[in-house]
Design a protein around this nucleic acid. Sequence first.
DNA 1: CGGGGACCTCG
DNA 2: GAGGTCCCC
Length: 412
Amino acid sequence: MAKHAVLSSGSKMWRSLACAKSELSLDLTLACGQSFRWRETAEGHWTGVMGGRIWTLTQTGDILWYHVYKNHEQNREVGGSDRKRRAGVSLQMENKSEKRIKGALKKEEEEPVALTSVQDTEEEEEMLRDYFQLNVKLLDLYNEWGVADPHFKCIADIFTGVRMLRQDPTECLFSFICTSNNHISRIQGMVERLCQALGAPLCQLDETSYYNFPSLSALADNSVEACLRDLGFGYRARFLQQSAKQILDTHGLQWLEGLRSVPYLLARDALRTLPGVGTKVADCVCLMSLDKAEAVPIDTHVWQIAKRDYNYASGNGQKSITAKLHRDIGDFFRKLWGPYAGWAQSVLFCADLKKFQKLKEMPHLKRPKKEENDEEELRVACKKTKIKREENGTVKKMKTKSAHHKKAKTSE
DNA sequence: CGGGGACCTCG
DNA sequence: GAGGTCCCC
Protein backbone atom coordinates (compact mmCIF):
# COMPACT_ATOMS: atom_id res chain seq x y z
CA MET A 1 0.00 0.00 0.00
CA ALA A 2 1.23 3.50 -0.77
CA LYS A 3 2.45 5.51 2.19
CA HIS A 4 2.65 9.14 3.15
CA ALA A 5 5.98 10.67 2.30
CA VAL A 6 8.44 11.51 5.07
CA LEU A 7 11.46 13.59 4.25
CA SER A 8 13.89 11.80 6.54
CA SER A 9 13.01 8.35 5.24
CA GLY A 10 14.18 9.27 1.77
CA SER A 11 11.85 6.73 0.23
CA LYS A 12 10.08 9.28 -1.93
CA MET A 13 11.25 11.83 -4.36
CA TRP A 14 11.24 15.31 -2.93
CA ARG A 15 11.76 18.60 -4.69
CA SER A 16 12.57 21.87 -3.03
CA LEU A 17 12.05 25.57 -3.20
CA ALA A 18 14.00 28.29 -1.44
CA CYS A 19 11.54 29.90 0.97
CA ALA A 20 12.42 31.57 4.24
CA LYS A 21 10.47 30.66 7.37
CA SER A 22 9.63 34.33 7.70
CA GLU A 23 7.86 34.13 4.34
CA LEU A 24 5.91 30.98 5.14
CA SER A 25 5.07 28.90 8.16
CA LEU A 26 3.32 25.74 7.05
CA ASP A 27 2.33 24.86 10.60
CA LEU A 28 0.46 28.12 11.07
CA THR A 29 -0.79 28.79 7.57
CA LEU A 30 -2.26 25.35 6.92
CA ALA A 31 -3.96 25.00 10.28
CA CYS A 32 -5.44 28.43 10.93
CA GLY A 33 -8.84 27.91 9.32
CA GLN A 34 -8.21 29.13 5.79
CA SER A 35 -8.24 25.73 4.16
CA PHE A 36 -9.80 22.74 5.84
CA ARG A 37 -8.09 20.16 3.67
CA TRP A 38 -4.58 19.80 5.11
CA ARG A 39 -3.55 17.29 7.78
CA GLU A 40 -0.29 16.89 9.60
CA THR A 41 0.59 13.35 8.53
CA ALA A 42 3.98 13.32 10.23
CA GLU A 43 5.76 15.88 12.37
CA GLY A 44 5.91 19.07 10.36
CA HIS A 45 4.62 17.22 7.29
CA TRP A 46 1.36 18.46 5.79
CA THR A 47 -0.59 16.39 3.30
CA GLY A 48 -3.54 17.60 1.27
CA VAL A 49 -5.16 17.90 -2.13
CA MET A 50 -4.49 20.95 -4.26
CA GLY A 51 -5.03 21.41 -7.96
CA GLY A 52 -6.22 17.84 -8.40
CA ARG A 53 -3.04 16.34 -6.96
CA ILE A 54 -1.98 15.09 -3.57
CA TRP A 55 0.94 16.86 -1.92
CA THR A 56 3.04 16.48 1.16
CA LEU A 57 4.90 19.60 2.25
CA THR A 58 7.50 20.20 4.91
CA GLN A 59 10.18 22.76 5.81
CA THR A 60 13.79 22.61 6.95
CA GLY A 61 15.76 25.78 7.44
CA ASP A 62 14.83 28.07 4.63
CA ILE A 63 13.82 25.27 2.28
CA LEU A 64 10.28 24.28 1.41
CA TRP A 65 10.16 20.61 0.43
CA TYR A 66 7.33 19.08 -1.54
CA HIS A 67 6.38 15.67 -2.77
CA VAL A 68 3.67 15.13 -5.36
CA TYR A 69 2.17 11.66 -5.47
CA LYS A 70 2.34 10.26 -8.97
CA ASN A 71 0.31 7.96 -11.14
CA HIS A 72 1.67 4.70 -9.84
CA GLU A 73 0.33 5.52 -6.41
CA GLN A 74 -2.63 7.59 -7.48
CA ASN A 75 -5.71 7.13 -9.63
CA ARG A 76 -4.79 10.09 -11.70
CA GLU A 77 -5.95 9.98 -15.26
CA VAL A 78 -3.42 11.28 -17.72
CA GLY A 79 -3.68 13.59 -20.69
CA GLY A 80 -6.88 15.45 -21.43
CA SER A 81 -8.41 15.15 -18.01
CA ASP A 82 -5.45 16.92 -16.54
CA ARG A 83 -6.17 19.92 -18.60
CA LYS A 84 -9.73 20.01 -17.35
CA ARG A 85 -8.57 19.78 -13.79
CA ARG A 86 -6.36 22.76 -14.31
CA ALA A 87 -9.36 24.67 -15.54
CA GLY A 88 -10.98 23.91 -12.22
CA VAL A 89 -13.37 21.27 -13.47
CA SER A 90 -13.04 18.31 -11.21
CA LEU A 91 -14.28 15.19 -12.85
CA GLN A 92 -17.05 13.23 -11.34
CA MET A 93 -16.16 9.63 -11.49
CA GLU A 94 -18.93 7.21 -12.25
CA ASN A 95 -19.07 3.88 -10.53
CA LYS A 96 -18.22 2.01 -13.65
CA SER A 97 -15.11 3.93 -14.55
CA GLU A 98 -14.03 3.92 -10.97
CA LYS A 99 -13.94 0.14 -10.93
CA ARG A 100 -12.17 0.04 -14.24
CA ILE A 101 -9.49 2.40 -13.06
CA LYS A 102 -8.99 0.58 -9.82
CA GLY A 103 -8.52 -2.60 -11.81
CA ALA A 104 -6.00 -0.90 -13.98
CA LEU A 105 -4.17 0.36 -10.93
CA LYS A 106 -3.63 -3.16 -9.66
CA LYS A 107 -1.61 -3.91 -12.75
CA GLU A 108 0.21 -0.63 -12.64
CA GLU A 109 1.58 -1.36 -9.23
CA GLU A 110 3.94 -3.84 -10.77
CA GLU A 111 5.02 -1.48 -13.50
CA PRO A 112 8.14 0.62 -13.16
CA VAL A 113 7.70 3.92 -11.39
CA ALA A 114 6.44 6.70 -13.62
CA LEU A 115 9.03 9.37 -14.12
CA THR A 116 8.26 12.98 -13.55
CA SER A 117 8.58 14.98 -16.70
CA VAL A 118 10.33 18.30 -16.81
CA GLN A 119 7.02 19.95 -17.60
CA ASP A 120 5.41 18.42 -14.52
CA THR A 121 8.24 19.67 -12.36
CA GLU A 122 7.99 23.20 -13.64
CA GLU A 123 4.23 23.15 -13.50
CA GLU A 124 4.12 21.86 -9.96
CA GLU A 125 6.60 24.40 -8.71
CA GLU A 126 4.45 27.06 -10.31
CA MET A 127 1.33 25.62 -8.68
CA LEU A 128 2.97 25.93 -5.27
CA ARG A 129 4.16 29.47 -5.92
CA ASP A 130 0.68 30.38 -6.97
CA TYR A 131 -1.07 28.62 -4.06
CA PHE A 132 1.16 30.29 -1.48
CA GLN A 133 1.36 33.54 -3.45
CA LEU A 134 5.11 33.57 -2.97
CA ASN A 135 5.46 36.62 -5.17
CA VAL A 136 3.99 38.61 -2.27
CA LYS A 137 6.80 39.55 0.10
CA LEU A 138 5.33 38.79 3.48
CA LEU A 139 8.27 40.05 5.51
CA ASP A 140 7.94 43.49 3.95
CA LEU A 141 4.24 43.52 4.75
CA TYR A 142 4.88 42.46 8.36
CA ASN A 143 7.28 45.35 8.71
CA GLU A 144 4.79 47.83 7.34
CA TRP A 145 1.99 46.56 9.56
CA GLY A 146 4.31 46.59 12.56
CA VAL A 147 5.24 50.21 12.02
CA ALA A 148 1.62 51.24 11.80
CA ASP A 149 0.42 49.06 14.66
CA PRO A 150 2.39 48.23 17.85
CA HIS A 151 0.00 45.50 18.85
CA PHE A 152 0.54 43.78 15.54
CA LYS A 153 4.28 44.02 15.96
CA CYS A 154 4.11 42.24 19.26
CA ILE A 155 2.08 39.38 17.86
CA ALA A 156 4.16 39.25 14.71
CA ASP A 157 7.39 38.32 16.47
CA ILE A 158 5.85 34.99 17.44
CA PHE A 159 3.43 34.37 14.60
CA THR A 160 5.71 34.77 11.63
CA GLY A 161 4.99 33.41 8.19
CA VAL A 162 1.19 33.43 8.33
CA ARG A 163 0.36 33.83 4.69
CA MET A 164 -2.87 34.02 2.76
CA LEU A 165 -3.46 31.02 0.51
CA ARG A 166 -4.83 31.47 -2.99
CA GLN A 167 -7.44 28.76 -2.94
CA ASP A 168 -9.67 27.36 -5.61
CA PRO A 169 -12.81 29.56 -5.56
CA THR A 170 -15.25 26.66 -5.66
CA GLU A 171 -13.58 24.86 -2.80
CA CYS A 172 -13.32 28.06 -0.83
CA LEU A 173 -16.94 29.10 -1.32
CA PHE A 174 -18.49 25.76 -0.47
CA SER A 175 -16.18 25.16 2.45
CA PHE A 176 -17.08 28.52 3.96
CA ILE A 177 -20.80 28.01 3.50
CA CYS A 178 -20.22 25.23 6.04
CA THR A 179 -18.69 27.60 8.59
CA SER A 180 -21.78 29.38 9.87
CA ASN A 181 -22.50 28.69 13.54
CA ASN A 182 -19.60 26.32 13.56
CA HIS A 183 -16.03 25.73 14.71
CA ILE A 184 -12.90 24.61 12.90
CA SER A 185 -12.67 21.03 14.05
CA ARG A 186 -16.24 20.28 13.08
CA ILE A 187 -15.89 22.13 9.76
CA GLN A 188 -12.86 20.01 8.91
CA GLY A 189 -14.86 16.85 9.38
CA MET A 190 -17.73 18.19 7.32
CA VAL A 191 -15.52 19.21 4.42
CA GLU A 192 -13.83 15.83 4.52
CA ARG A 193 -17.20 14.08 4.34
CA LEU A 194 -18.27 16.40 1.55
CA CYS A 195 -15.29 15.38 -0.57
CA GLN A 196 -15.68 11.74 0.32
CA ALA A 197 -19.33 11.71 -0.68
CA LEU A 198 -19.21 13.86 -3.81
CA GLY A 199 -15.63 14.27 -4.95
CA ALA A 200 -13.64 12.12 -7.33
CA PRO A 201 -11.38 9.66 -5.52
CA LEU A 202 -7.66 10.14 -6.05
CA CYS A 203 -5.84 7.51 -4.05
CA GLN A 204 -5.19 6.02 -0.66
CA LEU A 205 -2.08 6.64 1.43
CA ASP A 206 -1.71 4.49 4.52
CA GLU A 207 -5.24 4.42 5.98
CA THR A 208 -6.41 7.66 4.41
CA SER A 209 -8.30 8.06 1.15
CA TYR A 210 -7.96 11.31 -0.73
CA TYR A 211 -10.58 12.95 -2.92
CA ASN A 212 -10.88 15.95 -5.12
CA PHE A 213 -13.19 18.69 -3.98
CA PRO A 214 -16.62 18.11 -5.58
CA SER A 215 -17.44 19.80 -8.86
CA LEU A 216 -20.21 22.37 -9.12
CA SER A 217 -22.37 19.93 -11.03
CA ALA A 218 -21.92 17.26 -8.38
CA LEU A 219 -22.93 19.75 -5.71
CA ALA A 220 -25.94 20.96 -7.70
CA ASP A 221 -27.59 17.56 -8.00
CA ASN A 222 -31.04 17.35 -6.44
CA SER A 223 -30.07 14.41 -4.27
CA VAL A 224 -27.34 16.40 -2.54
CA GLU A 225 -29.38 18.08 0.17
CA ALA A 226 -30.70 14.81 1.59
CA CYS A 227 -27.31 13.21 1.28
CA LEU A 228 -25.56 15.99 3.18
CA ARG A 229 -28.24 16.16 5.83
CA ASP A 230 -27.53 12.52 6.53
CA LEU A 231 -23.89 13.42 6.87
CA GLY A 232 -24.65 15.97 9.57
CA PHE A 233 -24.57 19.24 7.63
CA GLY A 234 -27.88 20.43 9.06
CA TYR A 235 -29.45 23.45 7.42
CA ARG A 236 -26.24 24.08 5.47
CA ALA A 237 -27.04 21.11 3.24
CA ARG A 238 -29.69 23.09 1.41
CA PHE A 239 -27.44 26.16 1.08
CA LEU A 240 -24.71 24.11 -0.55
CA GLN A 241 -26.97 22.48 -3.12
CA GLN A 242 -28.89 25.65 -3.87
CA SER A 243 -25.81 27.79 -4.27
CA ALA A 244 -24.26 25.32 -6.68
CA LYS A 245 -27.47 25.12 -8.67
CA GLN A 246 -27.87 28.87 -8.76
CA ILE A 247 -24.33 29.38 -10.03
CA LEU A 248 -24.75 26.84 -12.81
CA ASP A 249 -28.25 27.97 -13.78
CA THR A 250 -27.74 31.70 -13.82
CA HIS A 251 -24.01 32.24 -14.33
CA GLY A 252 -22.13 29.18 -15.55
CA LEU A 253 -19.05 27.21 -14.68
CA GLN A 254 -16.51 30.00 -15.04
CA TRP A 255 -18.39 32.63 -13.08
CA LEU A 256 -16.63 32.22 -9.75
CA GLU A 257 -13.21 32.39 -11.25
CA GLY A 258 -14.23 35.39 -13.27
CA LEU A 259 -14.85 37.28 -10.03
CA ARG A 260 -11.10 37.40 -9.58
CA SER A 261 -10.94 40.26 -12.05
CA VAL A 262 -13.92 42.12 -10.59
CA PRO A 263 -13.50 44.89 -7.96
CA TYR A 264 -13.83 43.79 -4.34
CA LEU A 265 -17.20 45.25 -3.48
CA LEU A 266 -18.82 44.04 -6.69
CA ALA A 267 -17.48 40.54 -6.22
CA ARG A 268 -18.69 40.52 -2.65
CA ASP A 269 -22.18 41.62 -3.61
CA ALA A 270 -22.27 39.01 -6.34
CA LEU A 271 -21.42 36.29 -3.84
CA ARG A 272 -24.01 37.56 -1.41
CA THR A 273 -26.79 36.73 -3.84
CA LEU A 274 -26.11 33.06 -3.14
CA PRO A 275 -28.07 31.29 -0.39
CA GLY A 276 -26.01 30.77 2.74
CA VAL A 277 -23.57 33.51 1.79
CA GLY A 278 -23.70 36.60 3.96
CA THR A 279 -21.16 39.34 4.48
CA LYS A 280 -18.72 37.28 6.46
CA VAL A 281 -18.62 34.26 4.18
CA ALA A 282 -18.43 36.49 1.11
CA ASP A 283 -15.46 38.32 2.59
CA CYS A 284 -13.70 35.04 3.32
CA VAL A 285 -14.14 33.88 -0.27
CA CYS A 286 -13.01 37.25 -1.61
CA LEU A 287 -9.89 37.28 0.53
CA MET A 288 -8.92 33.63 0.29
CA SER A 289 -9.69 32.78 -3.32
CA LEU A 290 -10.54 35.89 -5.32
CA ASP A 291 -7.43 38.02 -4.83
CA LYS A 292 -9.12 40.66 -2.69
CA ALA A 293 -6.39 41.34 -0.15
CA GLU A 294 -8.35 44.25 1.31
CA ALA A 295 -11.31 42.09 2.32
CA VAL A 296 -11.48 41.78 6.12
CA PRO A 297 -13.92 39.08 7.25
CA ILE A 298 -15.69 40.31 10.36
CA ASP A 299 -17.20 37.85 12.77
CA THR A 300 -17.91 38.04 16.48
CA HIS A 301 -14.39 36.82 17.11
CA VAL A 302 -12.74 39.62 15.15
CA TRP A 303 -15.08 42.05 16.85
CA GLN A 304 -13.74 40.83 20.21
CA ILE A 305 -10.20 41.40 18.97
CA ALA A 306 -11.07 44.91 17.88
CA LYS A 307 -12.59 45.73 21.25
CA ARG A 308 -9.96 44.00 23.35
CA ASP A 309 -6.76 44.97 21.55
CA TYR A 310 -7.71 48.20 19.80
CA ASN A 311 -10.15 49.78 22.20
CA TYR A 312 -12.68 49.69 19.44
CA ALA A 313 -15.69 51.34 20.99
CA SER A 314 -18.33 52.05 18.39
CA GLY A 315 -21.23 49.65 18.32
CA ASN A 316 -20.76 48.93 21.98
CA GLY A 317 -24.47 48.75 22.58
CA GLN A 318 -25.04 46.18 19.85
CA LYS A 319 -25.77 42.58 20.60
CA SER A 320 -24.65 41.27 17.26
CA ILE A 321 -22.70 42.49 14.28
CA THR A 322 -24.89 44.78 12.22
CA ALA A 323 -24.27 45.75 8.62
CA LYS A 324 -22.94 49.10 9.73
CA LEU A 325 -20.60 47.51 12.23
CA HIS A 326 -19.27 45.25 9.48
CA ARG A 327 -18.39 48.23 7.36
CA ASP A 328 -16.96 50.28 10.21
CA ILE A 329 -14.73 47.58 11.62
CA GLY A 330 -13.54 46.63 8.13
CA ASP A 331 -12.76 50.25 7.34
CA PHE A 332 -11.02 50.64 10.68
CA PHE A 333 -8.61 47.81 9.90
CA ARG A 334 -8.13 48.84 6.28
CA LYS A 335 -7.16 52.29 7.45
CA LEU A 336 -4.77 50.82 9.99
CA TRP A 337 -3.10 48.19 7.81
CA GLY A 338 -3.63 49.33 4.25
CA PRO A 339 -4.46 47.42 1.06
CA TYR A 340 -3.41 44.01 2.46
CA ALA A 341 -5.54 44.40 5.59
CA GLY A 342 -7.10 40.98 5.13
CA TRP A 343 -3.69 39.37 5.28
CA ALA A 344 -2.82 41.20 8.48
CA GLN A 345 -6.11 40.24 10.06
CA SER A 346 -5.39 36.58 9.41
CA VAL A 347 -2.21 36.86 11.47
CA LEU A 348 -4.10 38.18 14.48
CA PHE A 349 -6.83 35.66 13.95
CA CYS A 350 -4.28 32.87 13.93
CA ALA A 351 -2.65 34.21 17.07
CA ASP A 352 -6.00 34.03 18.85
CA LEU A 353 -6.74 30.40 18.10
CA LYS A 354 -6.77 28.23 21.17
CA LYS A 355 -4.51 25.63 19.63
CA PHE A 356 -1.71 28.16 19.18
CA GLN A 357 -1.82 29.72 22.63
CA LYS A 358 1.13 27.65 23.81
CA LEU A 359 3.35 29.49 21.32
CA LYS A 360 2.84 32.67 23.31
CA GLU A 361 4.07 31.09 26.51
CA MET A 362 7.24 29.65 25.04
CA PRO A 363 10.18 32.00 25.36
CA HIS A 364 11.08 32.69 21.77
CA LEU A 365 14.80 32.14 21.91
CA LYS A 366 15.82 33.17 18.49
CA ARG A 367 14.44 36.63 18.32
CA PRO A 368 15.99 38.23 15.28
CA LYS A 369 17.97 40.82 17.14
CA LYS A 370 17.87 43.14 20.11
CA GLU A 371 15.79 45.99 18.96
CA GLU A 372 15.89 49.44 20.47
CA ASN A 373 14.20 50.14 23.76
CA ASP A 374 10.65 50.31 22.54
CA GLU A 375 10.75 46.60 23.29
CA GLU A 376 9.59 47.24 26.79
CA GLU A 377 6.47 48.90 25.58
CA LEU A 378 5.71 46.00 23.29
CA ARG A 379 6.16 43.45 26.02
CA VAL A 380 3.47 45.17 28.01
CA ALA A 381 1.10 44.93 25.11
CA CYS A 382 1.91 41.26 24.72
CA LYS A 383 1.42 40.48 28.34
CA LYS A 384 -1.95 42.10 28.37
CA THR A 385 -3.08 39.88 25.56
CA LYS A 386 -1.67 36.78 27.15
CA ILE A 387 -3.44 37.26 30.42
CA LYS A 388 -6.76 37.68 28.76
CA ARG A 389 -6.33 34.45 26.93
CA GLU A 390 -5.36 32.48 29.98
CA GLU A 391 -8.58 33.34 31.75
CA ASN A 392 -10.60 30.92 29.68
CA GLY A 393 -7.86 28.56 28.78
CA THR A 394 -8.23 24.91 29.66
CA VAL A 395 -6.56 23.05 26.86
CA LYS A 396 -8.69 20.18 25.78
CA LYS A 397 -7.39 17.03 24.29
CA MET A 398 -9.44 16.07 21.30
CA LYS A 399 -9.27 12.37 20.78
CA THR A 400 -12.50 11.56 19.01
CA LYS A 401 -12.80 8.81 16.50
CA SER A 402 -13.53 10.47 13.19
CA ALA A 403 -15.93 7.72 12.20
CA HIS A 404 -18.53 8.99 14.64
CA HIS A 405 -20.44 11.22 12.30
CA LYS A 406 -23.22 8.66 12.23
CA LYS A 407 -24.89 10.69 14.96
CA ALA A 408 -26.99 8.68 17.33
CA LYS A 409 -30.16 10.66 17.23
CA THR A 410 -31.31 11.19 20.75
CA SER A 411 -34.81 12.54 20.86
CA GLU A 412 -35.07 15.90 22.54
C1' DC B 1 -31.04 50.12 9.62
C1' DG B 2 -31.57 47.15 13.65
C1' DG B 3 -33.90 43.55 16.78
C1' DG B 4 -35.56 38.87 17.30
C1' DG B 5 -36.00 34.14 16.23
C1' DA B 6 -35.11 29.92 13.66
C1' DC B 7 -31.87 26.82 11.71
C1' DC B 8 -28.48 21.73 12.75
C1' DT B 9 -25.20 19.45 15.44
C1' DC B 10 -21.82 18.82 18.90
C1' DG B 11 -19.15 19.60 23.16
C1' DG C 1 -23.23 28.82 22.55
C1' DA C 2 -20.24 28.12 18.37
C1' DG C 3 -15.63 31.88 13.58
C1' DG C 4 -23.61 33.21 10.55
C1' DT C 5 -27.49 33.73 7.50
C1' DC C 6 -32.26 34.34 6.37
C1' DC C 7 -36.67 36.24 7.11
C1' DC C 8 -39.94 39.17 9.23
C1' DC C 9 -41.08 43.32 11.48
